[in-house]
């Protein structure tokens, strides 16, 4: 089904329908409370699955290495994605460049379970994101604020992640973006219905979606946090701030003991409101990834600025 309506999905018909808004968004609902881990090999994917990841993100280089290596970062090699799909039984996600709908078509043909149209890769289009309604495979997109999240949803995104600053091991931008999104939702809640039209204009987002968020008090799709989570406490922080789950990129496989850290972050994500469990999970994890101070990052190296 190629519905262009972002509103609540319709009644099921007698004939099975794939790719509906409800099965795309519903897939993300199943991931809630979980951790999605970046992996670059089938072996890492298995470690992630063993640790209790709800899904893995298959990519060629983790963001920390993309930063280090520079150059153009693109969709991963299909062989590498196939290898990871065959290695694990949990869902597999993969990244396309922003606006590179052909990379997305390739990922769909490979059978990935979710496509991340990601600012971590080098954008292919500086004006347009991909039309995500055109795909059966659901999409997750990053956002730094509510307007950006709603524009992505209007384009068909079935899940949103706050962007943070990938590959830094520094949670500060993740906190900034999640607080921004949650804060703006809170403000919409307080508006009179007469004020929602002007709010939509300010947010540069469709009025219908703005109205829906004002009524629901949340996005109409699942909201995860990404970009800078490196410790169990970081993951729990994002959940206490309102993320429904977390993406962990470089934080696991750039650390001293990935298997142990991965399991610890899973535990802390489930018991995000229990400091005793988080404390236990935080013991003896070995070295965390080194991390980068975001205020020393030049503008051109800030991935969160990519996408509009």
């Amino acid at each position: 089904m190629s519905s262009t309506s972002p509103s609540t999905p319709e009644t099921a018909s007698q004939h099975p329908e794939t790719g509906t808004a409800r099965v795309k968004r519903g897939m993300a609902e199943q991931l809630k409370g979980g951790v999605i881990m970046d992996v670059v090999t089938p072996e890492e994917a298995k470690i992630a699955e063993d640790a209790g990841a709800v899904a893995v993100m298959a990519l060629e280089r983790v963001p920390a290495d993309i930063r280090k290596d520079g150059g153009v970062a693109r969709m991963s090699d299909p062989d590498m994605i196939d290898g990871i799909i065959n290695a694990v039984s949990i869902p597999v996600m993969a990244k396309s460049r922003i606006g590179h709908f052909v990379e997305a078509q390739v990922l769909q043909s490979l059978g990935v379970d979710y496509i991340d149209e990601s600012e971590v890769l080098t954008p292919a289009d500086e004006v347009n994101h991909s039309d995500k309604w055109a795909f059966t495979t659901p999409f997750v997109c990053g956002a730094t604020n509510l307007g950006e999240a709603l524009r992505r949803i209007a384009e068909g995104a079935a899940m949103i992640r706050s962007k943070g600053e990938a590959g830094t091991g520094n949670v500060v931008e993740a906190v900034r973006h999640l607080r921004q999104i949650k804060g703006e939702i809170g403000r919409l809640r307080s508006l009179d219905h007469n004020e929602l039209f002007a709010a939509a204009k300010e947010l540069r987002a469709p009025y219908e979606l703005v109205k829906e968020v004002a009524e629901l008090g949340k996005l109409p799709v699942v909201l995860f946090s990404a970009g800078g989570v490196a410790t169990p406490a970081d993951a729990a922080l994002m959940r206490q701030l309102g993320a429904e789950g977390v993406f962990v990129g470089s934080g696991i496989f750039k650390s001293g003991d990935p298997a142990k850290r991965a399991a610890a972050i899973v535990k802390a994500t489930t018991f995000y409101d229990d400091p005793k469990v988080i404390a236990d999970a935080s013991r003896d994890l070995g070295e965390a990834m080194v991390g980068i101070n975001c205020d020393t990052l030049p503008e051109s190296e800030r991935y969160a600025n990519r996408g509009w």
Binding site: P16, T20, R22, V23, Q108, V112, Y114, T137
Partner: peptide
């Protein structure tokens, strides 16, 4: 498990 397939095969039906 996953008998009806991966996400692209996920569906709605009465």
């Amino acid at each position: 498990r996953n008998a009806f397939g991966r996400q692209n095969d996920s569906f709605e039906a009465a």
